[in-house]
Amino acid sequence: MANPILTIVVPCYNEEEVLPETVFRLSAILDGMIAEALISADSTMLLVDDGSKDATWQLIDRFHEANTFVTGLKLARNAGHQSALLAGLMQAKAYSDCVVSIDADLQDDTDVIREFVVKYREGYDIVYGVRQDRSSDTLFKRATAQGFYKLMTSLGVKIHYNHADFRLMSKRTLDEMERFQEVNLFLRGIVPLLGFPSTQVYYDRKERFAGESKYPLRKMLAFAFDGITSFSVTPIRFVTVLGFLLFALSVVAAIYALIGKIVGANVTGWTSLILSVWFIGGVQLLALGLIGEYIGKIYKEVKHRPKFVIEKRLLAPAALEDAPAPPASSYAGRHR
Rank of each mutant, 00 (worst) to 15 (best):
A55S: 15
T268R: 14
R62E: 13
F231V: 05
S329F: 05
L275K: 15
K74H: 09
K297I: 08
I34R: 08
I34P: 03
F116T: 00
Q200C: 14
V117F: 00
V112I: 15
Y299N: 11
T240F: 13
A319G: 07
M169I: 09
E321R: 08
A222P: 00
F69A: 05
R179W: 03
I298S: 09
K297E: 11
N3F: 03
L73K: 04
A248P: 01
L26Q: 06
A145R: 14
I159N: 00
A145G: 04
R114C: 06
G289R: 13
T153P: 02
S272D: 13
K141C: 07
L288I: 15
F247T: 14
P20Q: 03
Y161D: 14
K300A: 13
Y95K: 01
F69H: 15
D49T: 12
A253I: 13
G189H: 05
F186N: 02
D31A: 06
P20E: 03
G282K: 11
V100T: 00
L38N: 03
T138V: 07
V157D: 05
I291H: 13
K214E: 06
D105G: 08
K303Y: 06
A248G: 10
L6R: 01
E178H: 11
L47I: 14
N184A: 13
V23A: 05
G195N: 03
V309P: 02
W57D: 10
S198N: 14
A66R: 13
G32E: 03
L174A: 08
L6M: 05
G129S: 07
A248S: 14
K158F: 08
L193K: 13
D125R: 09
R114S: 08
V99I: 08
S170Q: 07
C12S: 03
A55T: 15
V99K: 02
M1E: 05
A84P: 00
G289P: 05
L285Q: 11
Q91D: 12
V127Y: 01
A287F: 11
S96A: 09
M152C: 13
D226C: 07
P197D: 12
A84V: 03
G156M: 01
E321N: 06
G281N: 11
F308P: 01
Q132G: 05
P20I: 02
S330G: 01
A319E: 02
D111N: 12
G129M: 05
L26V: 04
T44N: 15
I102S: 05
G227R: 00
Y161M: 11
N14Y: 01
L106D: 00
Y299A: 09
K312Y: 06
D54E: 11
Y256G: 12
R334A: 04
H304G: 04
A94H: 10
A164W: 07
M177S: 09
S230D: 08
V18R: 00
A76Q: 09
Q146K: 10
H304N: 09
V100D: 00
L85T: 10
G195Q: 02
V100W: 00
G32P: 01
V251S: 08
V239Y: 10
L217F: 10
G269H: 06
L275N: 15
A318S: 06
I8L: 02
V130T: 10
T44R: 15
M169E: 10
A76L: 10
N67M: 06
A92T: 01
L242N: 12
R77L: 05
V48P: 01
K214M: 05
G129A: 06
L174M: 12
P324R: 02
L85N: 04
G260Y: 14
D226F: 06
F24Y: 07
G296P: 04
T240D: 10
